[in-house]
Write a protein that binds this DNA or RNA. Structure first.
Lengths: 105, 105
DNA sequence: AAATTATGCAACCTTAAGGTTGCAAATATA
DNA sequence: TATATTTGCAACCTTAAGGTTGCATAATTT
């Protein structure tokens, strides 16, 4: 039942949470106010994000501020990286194609 | 029931398929041979990837070669971009912290 | 000390995800 | 033409995802 980052970012609400707290750390209650669902539903999403370490808690009295964990997000970037070369190639091929069409004129 | 790219890559099998065909276009049968599941199960994954346009079909007789669609994959890059600045900041803060520790010695 | 507030956990419900098997349609081969 | 091959679609099953409500716990405020 351990979630990975790919599952975590699959949900639009969780992506919204990440976008929010990347800007500034927030408590679960503060986050819940931003969404049209129950606090507990948001709390579940927080749990998933926390389990895969995309966010990190910072206790402050009875409040918990969740921070964005950029380091973990970078793992996603690393995954995308393996395809980056491919699209550069495909775009170069497109350039060549366009160049050929141009030459034929 | 329209899938988005984030849902699409949430499944490890689908990520494996993408990694495979980024290297070279393959038919569903050829893909299915690489996985320990039924052809139909793989076919379902192909359907999801196709629906969100991460892959593109090329008919050749009765065979269909699915190609990697680099352009769509780039949408991930766009999404991660909003966090890239954040982790640069967080890493700079880490550098400062380490520098401070060093100074105290 | 009592009441309020912030959070997390558990039970429950509904729907979708991911797998299976069987069958139909279209193309290729004997 | 008959047969084999490639693929997609539909029905079904099991489990997990995402939501709800209610309650327990710990910290703050009155």
């Amino acid at each position: 039942m351990k979630h990975d980052i790919f599952q975590a970012i699959a949900d639009p609400t969780r992506r919204a949470i990440l976008a929010l707290i990347a800007f500034q750390a927030l408590t679960p209650n503060a986050m819940a106010e931003k969404f049209d669902m129950s606090r507990q539903a948001v709390s579940k999403h927080i749990k998933v994000l926390h389990q895969c370490e995309l966010i990190k808690p910072e206790q402050s009295g009875r409040e918990i501020y969740y921070h964005f964990n950029a380091k973990k997000m970078q793992e996603f970037d690393d995954w995308v990286a393996q395809f980056r070369q491919k699209w550069e190639i495909q775009f170069n091929q497109l350039d060549e194609l366009l160049a050929n069409i141009k030459d034929k004129k």
